[in-house]
């Protein structure tokens, strides 16, 4: 009786797993073996691995995602750390979350205005005597905006890790004569590393696929894996090749997850 009840509870969730998790992944892999004429073929993969353009695009995309993640991390860790020391930290954390509620497209749109020829950024550059520059449609503007958008997603996991940290460890470290820096380096940072890794996961993978930013801010100069997939699916209608790049992106994602997520099993966090 109870057993059957449990099954009916599981049914909608199980259906979701089958239809929207397993099936789509299987389909994208399946589709990657078909060319434009719907013939089963490996040509998509051979084209991909023989084409300098595709390989360079992939390397570029990974490099940009790396830079975005790096900058996001460098800005977010201190932010999370300082917020955690504040009195009304829940409130400040909400202020971090609030911008994520603003649609990502609106934020990108704001930067089109800020970075435009006569925009705020150029007015500032003129004011300090550098003179107006072409900011919009450069690689730097793409990285800046992507970093801006990702910062909250890095702050949150790091903050949570800091929140999980038992303050007794910090007190113990201080009592044993460690300086602030030593405490940070040997106690706080290693113990909050899971948060940093979660943040890297949350930032790096989406950064590989931010196609709207490459179009709106990067001016199509930066082509990420995401841009390539979107182009193949919605513009050139070459779903086979698009799926192949998709499979590459999935593989990249798995690699990132293995690099950042495996720690749990080894250590078994003592809590």
């Amino acid at each position: 009786m109870t057993k059957r009840r449990t099954w009916t509870y599981f049914l909608p969730y199980g259906l979701w797993l089958a239809l929207f998790v397993i099936a789509p992944v299987a389909l994208i892999i399946y589709q990657s073996f078909f060319d434009l004429g719907h013939h089963f073929t490996l040509s998509n993969y051979s084209t991909y691995f023989q084409s300098a353009t595709y390989l360079k695009m992939t390397a570029n995309s990974v490099w940009y995602a790396f830079l975005i993640t790096l900058f996001t991390g460098l800005i977010s860790y201190p932010t999370a750390y300082f917020i955690h020391q504040l009195k009304h930290r829940q409130f400040w954390l909400l202020l971090v979350i609030l911008p994520t509620w603003i649609n990502i497209l609106l934020k990108a749109y704001a930067f089109i205005g800020i970075f435009s020829q006569a925009g705020l950024a150029n007015q500032f550059l003129t004011f300090i005597g550098i003179g107006p520059q072409q900011i919009l449609f450069t690689n730097a503007s793409f990285i800046f905006v992507a970093t801006y958008i990702q910062i909250p997603f890095m702050i949150l996991p790091i903050y949570n890790a800091l929140d999980d940290l038992n303050p007794a460890f910090i007190n113990a470290s201080r009592d044993l004569g460690a300086s602030n820096w030593q405490t940070f380096r040997h106690v706080i940072f290693p113990l909050t590393l899971p948060g940093v890794k979660a943040g890297i996961q949350a930032v790096f993978i989406p950064s590989l696929s931010l196609f709207m930013l490459t179009r709106l801010i990067g001016g199509n100069k930066v082509i990420t894996l995401g841009t390539a997939i979107e182009e193949h699916f919605l513009t050139t209608m070459n779903w086979g090749m698009g799926s192949t790049i998709g499979v590459i992106l999935i593989v990249a994602m798995i690699v990132v997850m293995l690099l950042t997520g495996d720690q749990k099993r080894e250590g078994g966090t003592p809590r």
Binding site: L17, A23, I28, Q31, I205, L225, I229, E230, W239, M253
Partner: peptide, 20 residues
């Protein structure tokens, strides 16, 4: 399995749902 869609890039989700 639950986390597959959490970590999948949006483009992959979009493209695979489109095929689906």
């Amino acid at each position: 399995l639950n986390n597959v869609l959490m970590v999948s890039p949006d483009v992959i989700i979009g493209a695979s749902f489109l095929i689906f």
